[in-house]
Design a binder for these strands. Structure first.
Length: 912
RNA sequence: GCCGGGAUGGCGGAAUUGGUAGACGCAACGGACUUAAAAUCCGUUGGGCGAAAGCCCGUGCGGGUUCGAGUCCCGCUCUCGGUACCA
């Protein structure tokens, strides 16, 4: 018998789709039809190619795209590449080839691999962040940020010239200021600004990194190199202005709760009070932030962060030497050191005193690195009685401790953070904490010594990198230190071609950063504008920049007048933004937070979704992604030798010589690699564990329809689950069975006939349509496939398949296994692709059953099942239930207390 | 430490609102076809007792709510993520 010729079929249909541009979404779609925008998270074009874990999400979005097309939606389903940035550049550096070349090659290879699994992208819209025509608009968005400020009264971004006009009108001294002074004033409000900030400097990568790119061990996420804190003048984006909205607007989106929570934690909103402390009898003041103003009476000392500006000014002569020594030590300590002895408190006394406004007492001011300059005001009031860290510090340095909350009688700990009544606190005594907080804030505001306030953990976004492979900033530096933005009309600022693009790397944490662009030809570096010679900004943007807005460019990828056309943007982004966005949780915080931030800025400035004059018609929301779905990881067994080094999993065998891949989940196996014993473990599939399986390999052996089905059949999309090559045979058998059922012995024929299907078969069909449709809607592909497999078993015994059943079946199969479905469709007489055929609809009439089986329980235990008509009267059902032999036996000699009948579901007879 | 997810047969998993736990697939075992193997088809398969009818136990552990709990509540264990002196 001829076997299922998957190679021919898959090659044929992939060629067909490509030649006919089957999945092209025209620029001018019929906008009377509903739209559906399905997006995958932007991949970076890796040099080593895909393994079977990568396409998991792509297959899922592809199924949804194909399903939605058949349901009459205009579907936008594009793919592109996040090709700037560290990984692409490191790959190029390691291979000694220009990143432009490696990037192009890697993209080409990745596109080939994606096409080979039959993904229905509109490849005409393919883009890469490294395309000049793309990053031109990334630079344009940067200018939007640079040229706007956050109006906290209107709670939105506005053009900077409006602030300029406002200052000119309101500030009488504006007239008298120089251009440079005005520039400085405006810079303090721009959403993109230069600032000298303590940054994460990674000498081994030759660049600074965002906090987010530094691991909790104080190393670079890429390459795991040590990172040092250093003050450097850098570009920053004022994301903190949006902290509140980034948190609040999470309510608008349908995202997994844990992802929302991670974003909330990252923004880190906390309510409390700002309290001013007089220092040295009113010579200075320092504000502190606290979430527990109620404990003010227990503030027995104050602590400043080592970088705090007041440190210099308040330290007394006799303490200077010791303080300086501590500051130097703190500066030298990397985050790694701080991790190592994280719980041991260090600090030094400044010799200065502050006045506790509640008690009027003098309290000593200390410096300690457990207080961070980047949070709150960089200074705290220390309340050891109610704070563990302060308690530890107070114990270490023998500072006074006053409890201001009465701990329970059996409390034997140190600092007490729980509920209780306030003590030792004057006018607050006897109150509960919540009341005391309110009363303290009211009192502070009354005496003008503080106020209720909100603080966020979120910091401004460090936006420059000393790297070659990124978007150049559209910024010019004048000889007098002034900054000038490149005119939007003069974009793009093209990244100059350079033979030597390597970063200047060093082991010396003190070495100054030298961006590769400082070696660019003078013709690029210097620009004359209005007779002034400017030097270009030499830093480049981080990788996040390009991925912040690509979903907008896909909508209108060839527009050379705008980043995206308003009408098109309006159509595709209306209501929910991107309708479905699938990707890994690793992007739950950073990418999504950054993209939301940019989107909100563009929204405020009116570049996305013009607000309509009528509230009700105000359709497009300020959030880019409506529904987010996190896919799980693909896991696989991995093997290590005695030295703990991972070995190629494919070459491992068990004690009987069976390949490990076949028997790895069997008990009692010992494994060997080249005759030497290895240990088994289990982890994320990838290069480092040497347990990657290539999709090319599976495609060659079983075909990509099988690969697609297997990846979806493994389990729920969001769960992490083990890859088991052995299990693939199951879905492959399913496809082969379909092939045989439809073609019979002669694989050129088709066994579809025009006979009427039996009632039984129709009922099974309609039940399957309902199951598959519902399962697709909730992205439950594993159960949809199970439903189709069950249905296929009904076709096995048939001489021929009635057309009325064959057609809907093939259509349901199409999103999952499109190649075989297209082939069968054509053989059944289809003249073109089935991609836009209507999705089958179930008929409720076929779902009602004459008789249903329900369980009969006695005291909650199933004792029988009975067949009843679904609309039977309760009394009839109960009587039928009682008559059952086994039920009667269990009721014998007992008193029937209660009879429960849940219609169509269950009977429970309670007896004792 | 804190926050979040998860735990169901030998394995992957199903059970959508509290209603017959284990759908579907893999593996295993038995059988059919075959000279043989592959492929295919049929059957069995949570554990225990029983000749059978049937009975007992069973969704990480211990309690609880309910006529009824994998599902809800309380207390744990393990595991995977996130985060880490955030005042």
């Amino acid at each position: 018998m001829a076997d299922y010729p998957f190679k021919d079929i898959e090659a044929k249909w992939q060629r067909f789709w490509e030649e006919n541009k089957t999945f092209r979404t025209p620029s001018d779609v019929d906008t009377s039809k509903p739209k559906y925008y399905v997006l995958d998270m932007f991949p970076y074009p890796s040099g080593i190619g895909l393994h079977v874990g990568h396409p998991l999400g792509y297959i899922a979005t592809d199924i949804v795209s194909r399903f939605k097309r058949m349901r009459g939606f205009n579907v936008l389903h594009p793919m592109g590449f996040d090709s700037f940035g560290l990984p692409a550049e490191q790959f190029a550096v390691e291979h000694g080839v220009h990143p432009r070349i490696t990037t192009e090659k890697n993209i080409e290879n990745m596109v080939r691999q994606l096409k080979a699994i039959g993904l229905s992208y509109d490849w005409d819209r393919k883009l890469a962040t490294t395309d000049v025509e793309y990053y031109r608009w990334t630079q344009w968005i940067f200018l939007q940020l640079y040229n706007s400020y956050y109006d906290s009264e209107e709670d939105r971004a506005r053009p900077i010239y409006e602030l300029e006009a406002k200052l000119a009108a309101e500030d009488p001294s504006w007239e008298t200021k120089s251009d440079a002074e005005r520039g400085t004033m405006l810079a303090e409000h721009r959403l993109a600004y230069l600032a000298e900030v303590p940054v994460n400097w990674c000498p081994a990568l030759g660049t600074v990194l965002a906090n987010e790119e530094v691991t909790s061990e104080g190393r670079s996420e890429r390459g795991h190199h040590p990172v040092y804190k250093r003050p450097l003048r850098q570009w920053m984006l004022r994301i903190t202005a949006y902290a509140d909205r980034l948190e609040r607007d999470l309510e608008l989106v349908d995202w997994p709760e844990p992802v929302k929570l991670m974003q909330r934690n990252w923004v880190g909103r906390s309510e409390g009070a700002h309290i001013d402390f007089d220092i040295a009898n009113g010579e200075h003041t320092s504000g502190v932030f606290t979430t527990r103003p109620d404990t003010l009476f227990g503030a027995t000392y104050m602590v400043l962060a080592p970088e705090h500006p007041l440190v210099d000014r308040i330290t007394t002569e006799d303490r200077k030497e010791e303080v300086l020594a501590y500051l130097r030590e703190a500066e030298r300590r990397t985050d790694i050191d701080r991790m190592a002895d994280s719980r041991i408190k260090t600090g030094v006394f400044t010799g200065a005193y502050a006045t506790n406004p509640a008690t009027g007492k003098e309290i000593p001011i200390w410096i300690a690195d457990y207080v961070l300059m980047g949070y709150g005001t960089g200074a705290i009031m220390a309340v050891p009685g109610q704070d563990e860290r302060d308690w530890e510090f107070a114990e270490a340095f023998d500072l006074p401790i006053v409890r201001t909350v009465e701990p329970p009688a059996d409390f034997d700990g140190k600092a007490y953070m729980g509920e209780g009544k306030v003590i030792n606190s004057g006018f607050l005594n006897g109150l509960y904490i919540d009341e005391a907080i309110q009363k303290t804030i009211a009192w502070l505001e009354e005496i003008g010594c503080g106020e209720g306030t909100v603080t966020y953990k979120l910091r401004d976004w460090l936006f420059s990198r000393q790297r070659y492979w990124g978007e150049p900033f559209p910024i010019l530096h004048g000889p007098d230190g002034t900054i000038r933005a490149v005119d939007a009309g003069r974009l793009p600022v093209v990244l100059p071609d350079m033979d030597d693009f390597r970063p200047t790397v060093t082991d010396d944490p003190e070495a100054p950063p030298l961006p590769p662009l400082s070696r660019a030809p003078e013709s690029w570096r210097f620009v004359d504008v209005d007779g002034v010679r400017y030097e270009r900004e030499l830093n480049t943007m981080p990788q996040w920049a390009g991925s912040c807005w690509y979903y907008l460019r896909f909508i209108d990828h060839t527009n050379d007048l705008h980043a995206v056309d308003k009408e098109r943007e309006h159509y595709w982004m209306t209501d929910h933004g991107v309708d479905l966005y699938i990707g890994g949780v690793e992007h739950a915080v950073l990418h999504l937070l950054y993209a939301r931030f940019w989107h909100k800025v563009l929204y405020d400035l009116g570049h996305v979704s013009t607000p309509e004059p009528f509230q009700k018609l105000f359709v497009t929301g300020p959030e880019p992604f409506g529904r987010l779905f996190n896919q799980g990881y693909i896991l696989a067994f991995a093997y290590r030798d005695e030295r703990g080094i991972a070995v190629e999993a494919t070459d491992v065998v068990d004690q009987d010589g069976n390949p490990a891949m076949e028997v790895q989940d069997h008990p009692g196996r010992r494994f060997f690699y080249k005759g030497r014993p290895v240990s088994q473990e289990y982890g994320k599939m990838g290069k480092s564990l040497k347990n990657a399986v290539s999709p090319d390999e599976i495609n060659g052996r079983y075909g990509c329809d099988t690969l697609r089905l297997y990846e979806m059949y493994m389990g729920p999309l969001e769960a992490s689950k083990p890859w088991n090559t052995r299990d693939i045979i199951g879905v492959n058998r399913f496809l082969r069975r379909i092939w045989r059922n439809f073609t019979g012995e002669d694989s050129d024929a088709i066994r579809v006939s025009d006979v009427d299907p039996s009632d039984d078969l129709l009922k099974a069909l309609h039940r399957t349509i309902k199951r598959v449709t519902d399962d697709f809607e909730r992205l439950s592909f594993n159960t949809a496939i199970a439903a189709l497999i069950e249905f296929t078993s009904k076709l096995n015994p048939l001489e021929s398949i009635p057309r009325a059943v064959a057609e809907p079946f093939v259509l349901m199969l199409a999103p999952l296994a499109p190649h075989i479905a297209e082939e069968l469709w054509q053989r059944m007489g289809g003249t073109e692709s089935l991609a836009y055929e209507s999705w089958p609809v179930w008929d409720e009439r076929y779902l009602v059953q004459d008789l249903i089986k329900i369980a009969v329980q006695v005291n909650g235990k199933v004792r029988a099942t009975i067949m009843i008509a679904p609309d039977s009267e309760e009394a009839d059902v109960l009587s039928l239930a009682r008559q059952d032999e086994n039920v009667a036996r269990h009721l014998e000699g007992k008193q029937l207390r209660r009879e429960i009948y849940v219609p169509g579901r269950i009977v429970n007879l309670v007896a004792s």
